[in-house]
Nucleic acid binder design. Structure first.
Lengths: 136, 136
DNA sequence: GTGTTTGCAAAGTGTTTGCAATTTA
DNA sequence: TAAATTGCAAACACTTTGCAAACAC
């Protein structure tokens, strides 16, 4: 059965990263990791839980997003100094940011290629290169 | 005389963008636009004013940075969802962000080159492409 | 003088935290 | 039952705003 399989998948995924599969984490993981890749904020997720009679406090959602992010299940995207966005796609890729709607969209791999990558300043290591194409 | 010339330059620059050259704006413009390019936050500028007996309220600094930015005198850089950074270099260029110290550094033009630039999604126009190289 | 700008204090956002109650293993 | 997690409310950090006093022209 689809629901049972995905349920156990989510639990295994949480266990893998040493997070106890609590009711809240399972519910959030299912929302985040089943279906297509998503770009979400804490507030968006919170509203989504409320529509589905899953009662999870906003504080727990913030904490969970940060835990998932530290565990490598999510990736934080910085595009706006007002809000934290998280991406369920943790592979290397870049984003369009729609300034009118505050929405994010993945750029297809291959549609952005850096011809020259700068050397990290002495004593440092490149952790990540973020390319944000701001459109309006 | 150096001081008088720069003083009048700053005033002309403010007038150019239709901002009345008030005591506060002149002081901030001098701090920002004389000398080398800088990456600053409101709080950093505020501390700097306090060290030089220039009394300017934090609210005015926030408002002034936003006005300068709208006027094209500064450019906002989004690297951290906690703080707004402004860059006095408004020409096209990219940044290193040092995650340990929260500092920004320009990447030399030519050290980042996009080999392929994505097409803007239908109905949109690219406003800007930001490349942030996060180092640690 | 008239309209603009400032500074203050208050309000507003988004996020984190301390702690008692609850849940997981 | 021991350790981890949750939810609440309070605290936080950064930023904006309303409004009276001060300033620019």
């Amino acid at each position: 059965m689809q629901t049972i399989r995905s349920f156990t998948n989510v639990i295994a995924r949480l266990r893998d990263v040493n997070l106890r599969p609590t009711r809240q984490r399972i519910a959030l993981a299912k929302m985040l990791f089943e279906g297509d890749d998503r770009h979400i904020t804490a507030e968006m997720l919170h509203q989504e839980t409320q529509k589905t009679n899953t009662r999870i406090s906003l504080a727990t959602i913030y904490n969970t997003l940060n835990q998932f992010s530290s565990a490598g299940l999510l990736r934080e995207i910085v595009v706006d100094s007002q809000r934290c966005y998280f991406d369920t796609n943790t592979t290397d890729h870049h984003h369009f940011f729609f300034e009118k709607t505050n929405e994010l969209k993945d750029i297809e791999a291959g549609d952005v290629v850096l011809a020259i990558v700068p050397l990290a300043p002495a004593g440092t290591v490149i952790k990540r290169i973020d390319v944000v194409v701001r459109v309006e």
